[in-house]
Design a protein around this nucleic acid. Structure first.
Lengths: 336, 336
DNA sequence: GATAATTACGAAAACGTTTTCATAAAATGT
DNA sequence: ACATTTTATGAAAACGTTTTCGTAATTATC
């Protein structure tokens, strides 16, 4: 590996001069600068990120925490898309993305925070984690520049999908289609579920629709089995709902299966709606009625914010950025 | 940040001793060792990865190249699963995973190889790239420890899904179900397509089945539209096939849509089969008949191999590891 | 009890940068 | 012609480690 020293030898100048020339400092003569750059290129010089980091305390590396206890992290459509977009955004600014090791197996493993410090990440983005994990809290409570997705922490920037208006729009549309008996199978507790559920009730109230308790069920996100069971229970009620909202598109398919097996037709006999807007949903008939979360913007905003936080901490406003989703009408909610 | 120096000050020993103690060198007294470790823990000491890397030329960081020109990288079920498994494997051994920046936007961007050197990755894993990219070739031709997935390079370890036997098993099953007019819509050219296509023809020959040229179509992977068009063309033939094999599960749904729209039933009127074994395929009725690629093992093997290559380069055998898939019978291929 | 072997530790150099400060040379002003 | 400012460069320290080699003290050997 060719280093500054090698270049300095060839050019007959000091390493200091080479360093400054390559970094475009103004106190190096144009001539020398050009020459040094030329030689550096010819010799195939590459900076050493470790040395750079050691000296400057900046790594140009962003840690991302993406736990997948249920082996769900990367294969989770929503988060994979967000990560993809985040990655593109920060990479366009010269930052790299490194996963914060979430392995529980490594013997001398560090906590998330320790790991982030060890690697010297300039900033950290948290997504799709068990927010009630002590280590996550520790990380969120540290002094590392940090952006979270879909979860708020005190004095931290959060990019959140607008679950409140999303659910409201969905409900409103369903209502417009004439439905009055609307059930909601919600996901496990957490900030996302909380917002959707609250919005669900509030919107129902606005339309003066009463929602019997038995219309509200819980089934884990992306659990098709659970969604199927809940669907069965709902349909067995004396007055079953005419439309069921699911925790997400994936589990919606669990419901659809059960419905099909019972010999009911969608949307003639029963309507269903998902949440997320996963890609496949628009490619299978009938197209899913759902709220398409804007993963592109969520990821891009998270990227912009973390970089801003790193590069101009003073002028970066700590806020909660709400990204609205979009109703996709599909064909699984029918007119009544 | 507390450093070795701080600890040495507190313990009244030299930094050399502290370093050795923490790294368990045998030439430090048990007493001292214990004491130093104790103090280090109390002071919240964390090693500085940059300094370590600078000195040792080892980063414990693995670069992964995962281009997604079509915005397809992370949201690609197959590769996302492989990456997930890879990540888990290497993390369990104390390695981190960093994406090799694939942004074309960054002004002074480096080539993949340059980037890998700049970051000092101990090893690199390549997946899902445009293999004909010059930069990929450059990387593959370098001296960096490297493992590729689903693509062979000279003198490089490759983990490849067994597309030959996969296609053979799939074809055989379809044949067993009584089909004799079998069409294949294959993906864009590349090693994977090549293997499947060859295997398709060879297996057909074994069963003495002639495949008219018009039964072979091309449509990009994961392109539902294209698959739909190809399906339409196939079904318009004077003697249409009784079964269609698709590039992958995703595009299979594109075909299914068209078939449904034409008023045909699956599998009574026409059979279809995918490839990959994406999760949703088992959760939507009718369940997809497909070859489930063993992403868990592919990722794990890639992880094991790259670590082995890094840690014991001499004794690591350079080979092509073939991971067999599994026929998932589903319900989209019917008996004839 | 002298010599040899072992054990425990430290001094210092090195890894490849960046940055501060000093200084020599050139340009400018009078 | 001299003083002053500007411009271009370099020496050296520092970042936090690891590692080699030296050495003093202890233990073993005969």
């Amino acid at each position: 590996m060719v280093s500054l020293k090698d270049i300095s030898a060839v050019c007959g100048v000091s390493v200091a001069t080479v360093s400054k020339a390559l970094n475009n400092h103004k106190d190096i003569g144009e001539e020398t600068k050009k020459h040094i750059k030329q030689v550096a290129k010819e010799m195939g010089y590459l900076p050493n990120s470790a040395a750079k980091a050691l000296k400057t305390n900046r790594t140009h590396n962003i840690g991302i925490l993406f736990t997948d206890e249920a082996h769900n992290g990367l294969t989770h459509d929503y988060f994979a898309s967000v990560l993809d977009s985040l990655k593109q955004t920060v990479e366009a600014h010269g930052y790299d993305v490194t996963f914060i090791n979430s392995s529980r197996k490594w013997p001398n493993r560090m906590s998330y925070l320790e790991h982030a410090r060890y690697r010297g990440f300039d900033g950290v983005v948290i997504a799709n984690v068990n927010f009630y994990d002590d280590e996550v809290e520790e990380l969120a409570g540290s002094d590392i520049p940090l952006v979270t997705i879909d979860k708020l922490y005190a004095n931290r920037i959060a990019i959140v999908s607008d679950n409140v208006n999303g659910m409201k729009d969905l409900f409103t549309y369903i209502h417009e289609m004439g439905h009055r008996r609307i059930a909601y199978i919600h996901g496990e507790p957490g900030p996302v579920t909380q917002n959707r559920l609250t919005s669900f009730y509030r919107t129902a109230e606005e339309f003066s629709i009463e929602v019997p308790d038995c219309y509200i069920k819980e089934s884990a996100y992306r659990d098709t089995e659970g969604a199927g069971r809940a669907t069965k229970e709902l349909l067995k009620l004396k007055t079953p709902p005419t439309c069921i909202i699911y925790p997400d598109d994936f589990s919606c398919y669990g419901g659809i299966n059960v419905i099909n097996k019972m010999g009911l037709r969608i949307p003639e006999d029963i309507s269903v709606a998902g949440y997320d807007g996963i890609r496949i949903g628009r490619h299978i008939e009938p197209q899913l009625t759902t709220i398409r979360q804007d993963t592109d913007r969520i990821g891009a905003q998270a990227g912009k914010k973390i970089i801003s936080l790193i590069e101009k901490p003073k002028s970066t406003v700590i806020e909660q950025v709400i990204i609205s989703g979009e109703l996709y009408k599909g064909a699984t909610v029918g007119k009544i």
